[in-house]
Amino acid sequence: MNRLSLASELARHTFLEQWRSRYFQLMVIFGAALVYASLLLGQLAVEQEGRVLFNSGALFLELAALGAMLLGCASSILRDMESKTIYLILSRPVPRWIYITGNYLGMAAAVGAAILCMGALHYLLLAFKGAAPSAEAYLLVMLAAWLKAAVAGALAVLVSLVSTSLLSAVMIAVFFWTLGHFVPEASFLAQRLQGPAGWLAKPLLWVIPNMSLFNYRETLDLPPGAFPGWGIALPYALLYICACLLFSVWLFRKREF
C-alpha cells in the first residue's frame, strides 16, 4: 500500500468514525436546530427578517462546525492513545506523519460534509423566506466557514500534542480562534507597546491565525474589493494548516509509546 492510499484509508476511517460518533452527530443536530431557531430571531427584526436569518444561521453553522472540528481534532489522537489503538496503527508500516495527516484530512472532510448538510437546511429556509443569496455566494460562505474550522482544527491537533487534557486543548484552540478575529486591533496595540511587553506581543501576533480573512459572510453587502480575496484566503489557510501539521508531526515523532 503506497503512502497516498494509506493516508486516504486513514482519512476515510476517521470520516466514518466521526459520522458514527454521538458527539459529532449531536453537534451537527444541534447546529441544524440552531440554524432553524434563527427563524425566531428573524421574526424580531420585522422588515429585516431575511438579513437576520442569514446572519444568525451562517454564524450558528460556523460555530457548530468549529465545535465539531475542535472536539474531533483535539480528541482523536488523545483517544487513540488512551484506547491503545495507536499501538495497532503504528506497529504497522504507517509513518507517523501519515497518521497525523490522514486523521486531520478525515476530520476536515467530515466537518465539510456536516457544513454542507447544515448549509442546505439554512439555504432552504432562506429560500422559503425569499431571502436567499445566490447559490454561488452561499457556497463561498460555506467554503469560508470550512476554511475557518480547518485552520482552527489544525491548531487543535498541534495543541492536543502539547496539552495534558482534551478540555485544555479545546480551550486554547478556542482562545486562538477568538483572538484571530482581533488581529488588526491587536497589531495596532502591539505597535504602540514599548519595552518587554512589545517584544512579547509582536511574536505572539505571528502565531495567531488571522480569522477575519475568512469572514466572507461579513462582506456580502460591502462594496466590491472589501473582501481580501480568495487569492489570499486560500493560500493563507493552506500555509497555516501546513505549519501546524508540520509542528505536530515533529512533536509526534519525538513521542515514545
Partner: peptide, 23 residues
C-alpha cells in the same frame, strides 16, 4: 520539520499582513 513549519507560518502571516475587512 520545525524549520519548514516556521517558514510556512511566516509566509502565511507575511501574506496576511495588514489585511482587514473595512469596518
Amino acid at each position: 520539520l520545525p524549520a519548514g513549519a516556521l517558514a510556512c507560518l511566516l509566509a502565511a502571516q507575511f501574506m496576511a499582513e495588514g489585511k482587514r475587512l473595512p469596518y
